[in-house]
Amino acid sequence: MYHTVHMFYKFDFHYYSAMYEVLSELSKTKKCRYFEEPKGSHQFHLLGDQGIKIILKRSTVVDEITYSAIEIIMNPMRLLDGNDYLQLADSAHFDQIRTSFKRALNDIRKKFRSKKRNKNLIFRFDLLDIYSFKRVDFAINISTEHVALYMKLIKRANIPDGFQLYTIYNSISKRSEPPRDSFYIFRKRFTKGKGASLELTVNCYNKGIQMLENGLPYHERAMTTIRFEIQCGYNKIYRIIRSKNLNKQGYSQFLREDISAEVLHTYFKKTVGYGDYYTISKAKELIMNTRLKLETRNNLIETIELVNDKRGIWKARETVDDKKRFDEHIKRLHDIGINPVTIPIAERIDYLPCLFDITNQI
């Protein structure tokens, strides 16, 4: 399942010029926002109320055109219902999405075909399967009455090697801090001569709070929803395409449940992990009752004590000299069903099941 996709379709200058003229005129007629960004990028919010942003891009290097394309950033569930900011798209929605996308671009298609200068140009931009992918946001919604406590624990999860914690500047504390209601980490890819690009982000957040902060319509179910989301950039998407023998174009293939499930499970395991949450005393008791060697049990107890003292796996990991050994202990704890992050006694709850429970998906 996913909630946002960033697609692109390359074309030549004739198509670029024709589409710019059409989109500009329609935007003016309908009084819709559009503007130019640096590096030859033009954004059109003509279909914003349907969850679609259209971008025309044209970049040059020493007077030579290197990239000319139309890009579509789309939330497919908002395409089906403009006020749906909660539900996620899957394969069952494909026919509706395809039909609604074609309908959404109807005015653009008519305007394009009405231009005499376009008589030799074919309008195909309302066909989803002509597009290639620049980014796909795979996601899952998980319903729980303990949203606040889960988020408190999740923010103490692991940060894998190569990832950085996303922070924002707090004008009150005068320092950069992670978002209050989310666990948000990212990984960049560095390419020689091109600098860094965002390759992948992991974001787990309180969906209800996120909607309120963005001024979105109130949704009762969102208030008991945690969203776990993996945003895959171009390089990650391209690796998925190669590993799954997919086509470079084709919208429907990324609605496949097996692909989204594999991506989500991989990064949930690397960050939050599959162990259940216990108080530290209960976790120690469970460890001592296993059939592991006494030395192993003592090592695992030392690990959860360190995580508890430092208030997080990633914070604890920063303090140890042998990170490989620490990672092995974290993995062993998850393997026996215990999350290294323990529930504070002040919460007055001694157990919470692993968040990634398929029965709680909505």
Rank of each mutant, 00 (worst) to 15 (best):
residue 5 V to Q: 11
residue 6 H to F: 11
residue 10 K to L: 11
residue 15 Y to Q: 09
residue 16 Y to N: 11
residue 20 Y to A: 13
residue 35 F to K: 12
residue 36 E to P: 00
residue 44 F to A: 10
residue 50 Q to P: 04
residue 51 G to T: 02
residue 53 K to G: 03
residue 56 L to Q: 04
residue 62 V to Y: 10
residue 68 S to F: 01
residue 70 I to C: 04
residue 70 I to G: 05
residue 72 I to C: 01
residue 79 L to A: 03
residue 81 D to V: 00
residue 84 D to L: 06
residue 86 L to K: 00
residue 86 L to T: 15
residue 90 D to V: 10
residue 91 S to D: 11
residue 94 F to P: 02
residue 94 F to M: 07
residue 101 F to D: 05
residue 101 F to Q: 10
residue 108 I to G: 07
residue 109 R to T: 07
residue 117 R to V: 11
residue 122 I to D: 14
residue 127 L to A: 12
residue 127 L to Y: 13
residue 134 K to Y: 09
residue 140 I to S: 03
residue 149 L to H: 04
residue 151 M to F: 08
residue 154 I to W: 04
residue 155 K to T: 08
residue 157 A to C: 03
residue 160 P to K: 01
residue 170 N to R: 10
residue 172 I to R: 13
residue 173 S to Q: 13
residue 177 E to Q: 12
residue 194 K to E: 10
residue 195 G to N: 07
residue 209 I to R: 13
residue 214 N to K: 14
residue 217 P to L: 07
residue 218 Y to F: 14
residue 221 R to M: 14
residue 223 M to K: 03
residue 226 I to H: 02
residue 230 I to N: 00
residue 234 Y to P: 00
residue 234 Y to T: 04
residue 235 N to R: 00
residue 237 I to L: 00
residue 243 S to D: 15
residue 243 S to R: 11
residue 245 N to G: 06
residue 248 K to L: 12
residue 248 K to M: 14
residue 250 G to L: 07
residue 263 V to Q: 08
residue 274 Y to C: 10
residue 279 T to H: 01
residue 283 A to E: 04
residue 285 E to P: 03
residue 287 I to C: 09
residue 288 M to G: 02
residue 290 T to R: 09
residue 292 L to Y: 13
residue 292 L to D: 07
residue 294 L to N: 06
residue 295 E to G: 06
residue 301 I to P: 06
residue 301 I to G: 09
residue 301 I to S: 08
residue 303 T to F: 10
residue 306 L to F: 09
residue 307 V to L: 07
residue 310 K to W: 05
residue 317 R to N: 08
residue 317 R to S: 14
residue 325 R to E: 14
residue 326 F to D: 03
residue 328 E to H: 11
residue 331 K to M: 06
residue 333 L to W: 08
residue 334 H to V: 00
residue 335 D to L: 05
residue 335 D to T: 06
residue 335 D to A: 12
residue 344 P to S: 05
residue 346 A to M: 08
residue 347 E to K: 01
residue 348 R to A: 08
residue 354 C to Q: 05
residue 354 C to D: 13
residue 354 C to E: 08
residue 360 N to R: 15
